[in-house]
């Protein structure tokens, strides 16, 4: 055991030694990056890759901490209520920061409780159905729903998640009068959800491209549409613009960095710098692209606008279809 400790210790020392000292006011001590979702998920992988790159540029380590629970709410609340000295920040995600605020009435936070410093990763939505489902196009799927809404079901990872809202929004865009009549099958995890469609327990799934990439590559699921502007190489499916529904391009997953509302300026500025460095780091870009994401850099204003717009579109849908949750 001693030798293991020594190896671990040595690698820890190496990691610290590799960091050049920066004479900045921030950070004064290790920074905690809270990921409100589980280990191994897309938010987690994006955040860990980010801190991997930033380790070289920060005078103190940045630690990824998973605080899982309630579709991202538990972790988000913990940052909203954290000491606002800039040393606790959040990897905010589409689910926790646009869908949940739009859907859940008793959510213990609002968008105003956070200061966004940037969005660094986008992840389009792909809808897919089982390879043997006999459904080849999104129109066929929608016709099937129109004929008999009860015979069709879609999976999600719970209420207030991108998977649920994306499915409803797409059905709404295609003129399905009551998307709520279609069975919503909530599962506990993204892998489980996609597996349920593959195994034939549900008809279709709409989720981040990264969660479906391996199923599509293995020809277990058939992609029906993507919400990207251009076709994705790994997914042989039309874009929403090609299908005549460019308004669905708003359906995109994202990861950004946010602090509590009173995040000090020096922390916000430093994080902006860091995001710029990371998003132009070739290794980081390659890594995330391979996981199915698109690396972007949005400054605080752009991010705020992007998030606010997405929130308003979702909010309108939620109000119109009465999707809100007490």
């Amino acid at each position: 055991m001693k030798s293991i400790k020594r190896i671990l210790g040595a690698s820890a020392i190496l990691a610290t030694a590799a960091m050049p000292a920066f004479a900045a006011d921030y950070p004064k001590r290790p920074v905690t990056l809270v990921v409100p979702y589980g280990t191994g998920g897309s938010t987690d992988i994006a955040s860990r890759s980010l801190t991997n790159v930033l380790g070289k540029h920060s005078s103190h380590p940045i630690m990824v901490v998973n605080r899982v629970g309630a579709a991202g709410v538990t972790g988000s609340v913990s940052v909203a209520n954290a000491r606002d000295d800039g040393h606790t920040v959040l990897a905010a995600r589409v689910g926790s920061h646009t869908i949940n605020p739009a859907m859940k009435r008793t959510l213990p936070y609002t968008l105003d409780d956070f200061r966004f410093v940037g969005v660094f990763e986008l992840n389009a939505v792909v809808c897919a159905t089982g390879a043997n489902s006999g459904i080849d196009t999104i129109e066929q799927l929608m016709d099937k729903i129109k004929a008999d809404p009860g015979s069709v079901s879609y999976v999600s990872t719970g209420v207030g998640t991108l998977l649920q809202l994306a499915s409803i929004m797409i059905m709404d865009a295609y003129g399905i009068e009551n998307p709520l009549a279609v069975t919503h099958l909530p599962m506990r995890g993204g892998g489980e959800a996609a597996t349920a469609v593959f195994a034939g327990n549900a008809t279709f799934v709409c989720t981040n491209s990264s969660d479906l990439a391996s199923f599509v590559a293995n020809k277990q699921l058939k992609p029906l549409l993507t919400t990207t502007k251009e076709r994705l190489p790994a997914f042989d499916a039309p874009t929403v613009a090609e299908l005549g529904h460019p308004e669905l391009e708003v359906l995109v997953g994202w990861t950004g960095i946010a602090g509590p509302a009173n995040l000090p300026d020096e922390a916000a500025v430093q994080w902006g710098e860091w995001l710029k460095i990371a998003t132009s780091d070739q290794g980081f870009v390659d890594h995330l692209t391979r996981m199915g994401s698109e690396v972007v850099y949005m400054d605080p204003d752009e991010s705020k606008q992007f998030i606010q717009h997405q929130y308003e579109v979702f909010k309108e849908l939620v109000t119109r279809l009465d999707l809100s949750v007490e």
Partner: peptide, 30 residues
């Protein structure tokens, strides 16, 4: 399920799938 279908059976294998994909390997029947 990971090797035969490319499906993660639990959280740990989900992480291991991530490791495969980072190296450009696609677990699954192929």
């Amino acid at each position: 399920p990971l090797l035969a279908l490319g499906i993660p059976g639990d959280v740990i294998t989900a992480i291991i799938i991530g490791a495969f994909m980072v190296h450009g390997l696609q677990p699954g029947p192929m």
